[in-house]
Design a protein around this nucleic acid. Sequence first.
DNA 1: CCGGGTTGATTTGTATACAAAACGGTCCTG
DNA 2: CAGGACCGTTTTGTATACAAATCAACCCGG
Lengths: 237, 237
Amino acid sequence: MTPTTRLKARRNARPEQVYQKLRSLIVRGQLAPGQRIVETDVAARLGVSRTPVRGALQRLGQEGYIVESPRLRQSRPTVAPMTREDARELFHIVAEVEGLAARFAAAMPTAARAALTKELTRINEEFRRASRPRDHDHDRVWELDELFHRRYVEAAAGPRLIALHDVVKPQAERYERLYVSLLHADLAVSATEHAAIARAIRSGDVDAAQASVQRNWRNAAERLGAVIETVGERGAW
Amino acid sequence: MTPTTRLKARRNARPEQVYQKLRSLIVRGQLAPGQRIVETDVAARLGVSRTPVRGALQRLGQEGYIVESPRLRQSRPTVAPMTREDARELFHIVAEVEGLAARFAAAMPTAARAALTKELTRINEEFRRASRPRDHDHDRVWELDELFHRRYVEAAAGPRLIALHDVVKPQAERYERLYVSLLHADLAVSATEHAAIARAIRSGDVDAAQASVQRNWRNAAERLGAVIETVGERGAW
DNA sequence: CCGGGTTGATTTGTATACAAAACGGTCCTG
DNA sequence: CAGGACCGTTTTGTATACAAATCAACCCGG
């Protein structure tokens, strides 16, 4: 489920668990934007000392989930606010990261490309089906979209790009989850864009593959920007 | 000089200093790829306890400077090896990050673009001059190249993209510094590519701006790959 | 009644002690 | 002589005590 293993109580297990737990809480909105984070509280609630919590918080800070000071006064760590500008920048970055992965995917050997695109098409069909207005299971729709993109990233990207993806993508998820219920009108468009991505990868056209992914995310940025504009930002005021 | 302030002994000063110091040592090669890092040694040498060192090391680990296990046996933190594949991936990522920044730069108002490109041109002229075969000051050449790219990133990118750039770029520096002496034949090409970037930003053509930056870095990746091929990799065997 | 400084409580930063894990070498056995 | 298990040493992981910094409330003077 989570991208990192939790199998045996191995070396860096504790901070990793804390990290995963907190990140999940932030991404899903249980820890609201602007909310204060206190080391001792987290430590107490998770039943560990401050030391592993510290590691996790530092990591979350570097990745942008936790921010020092959303405004003057309160220069203590708080959950990062969600703003229109931030969403825009973030989605453009995801567009580049996944775009590059698609480029690498389109450069794979023919056989690998065929196998990959076959699966991508299958996932996208399910995505199209799940996004029909009558069965509006938001979680499932999001999951399939996430899966679609993750597939070609993991298939083609190297360790560095995958690591970058793992860091950047969940932050986009934060926005997607919050506003997905307001975006379902655009899901059909998204499915069409996915089909274009699969086609470009299959054909081995690196530029087209990259461009089609970027188009998908930049469009998403536009749509999301409009929604945030009407609904309002969170944690920044 | 360094991107982070060190003015007054403020809150997170100690781990930041340790981070900067170690990163600098790694980037400049004093800490060689594959070399073991021991917390207590670092702490003793810098005159602090293990706690701040720990924070710095975690950060360096996440950013890819320090790696858990270059090979089986020795699953302890070591300086990340430098390989042909890694360089390739890294430079492609830089291409995307700076390419996106250039895209944003090309979308700025006309007046800002004019001011920016004027300075870019000035820097590039100096770069061209410094890269003439007779005065082969490698440090200065590298510095000017770095400055050129940093200018448009800082001028146009938002906080997230700048943060990403600060993390990714110094890792490319690691390769550039090691092999720059072998690349000076290509500096003229680089200067020409820089000119194309400035032109595209000035004209406000976002796609052209992004594409020209990507071309610059992808070409650099090719050139560097060839050099590594002949000289050999470091820290991986 | 409002503003500014002071003080007490909260929270983070650092050091250190202790526990657990991993490495490397050695000794024993086949 | 080779292979493997054991054990001491090194190194990291965790908890905790203490120091420093920051915040919030209060008090006092204007």
